[in-house]
């Protein structure tokens, strides 16, 4: 597992049913592109987050493939409609097989 990886998500705690809310997500990750060389001239192996998914109550909201050109600590912001109370599940997939996830609940009211 790459070191210092920490997911952060910002979701409003409450929304009205049918509201469009803004969701911000950020994961600290060095996103090593695989193009750089170390001091000895050896290629530093690629190590990035290659996929990011968001589900709401089991339904897919977002599923993105990420490429090596994405910069360090990738930040993704998007809007989603909340039809009912429930949980957003955010999942990041690392090149090394690690999976990081975090869950945020939204209440209606």
């Amino acid at each position: 597992m790459a070191s210092g990886v920490k997911p952060r998500v910002k979701v409003p705690k409450k929304a009205a049913a049918g509201d469009v809310i803004t969701i911000k997500s950020l994961i600290s990750h060095k996103m090593e592109s695989g193009q750089r060389k170390d001091k000895e001239g050896n290629l530093i192996p690629r190590s990035i987050i290659n996929r990011f998914t968001v589900e709401f109550n089991g339904q897919s909201v977002l599923d993105m493939t990420m490429e090596p050109a994405i910069s360090t600590n990738p930040y993704v912001q998007f809007e989603a409609t909340v039809p009912e109370a429930g949980d957003f599940v955010f999942t990041w997939y690392d090149d090394d097989g690690s999976v990081y996830d975090t869950t945020k609940s939204v209440a209606i009211g």
């Binding site: 210092g4 920490k6 952060r8 910002k10 911000k24 950020l26 600290s28 600590n73």
Partner: peptide
């Protein structure tokens, strides 16, 4: 604080 990239390092 969510937009402030410095807070990542505070978390760490």
């Amino acid at each position: 604080d969510f937009d402030n990239p410095g807070m990542i390092f505070v978390d760490l």
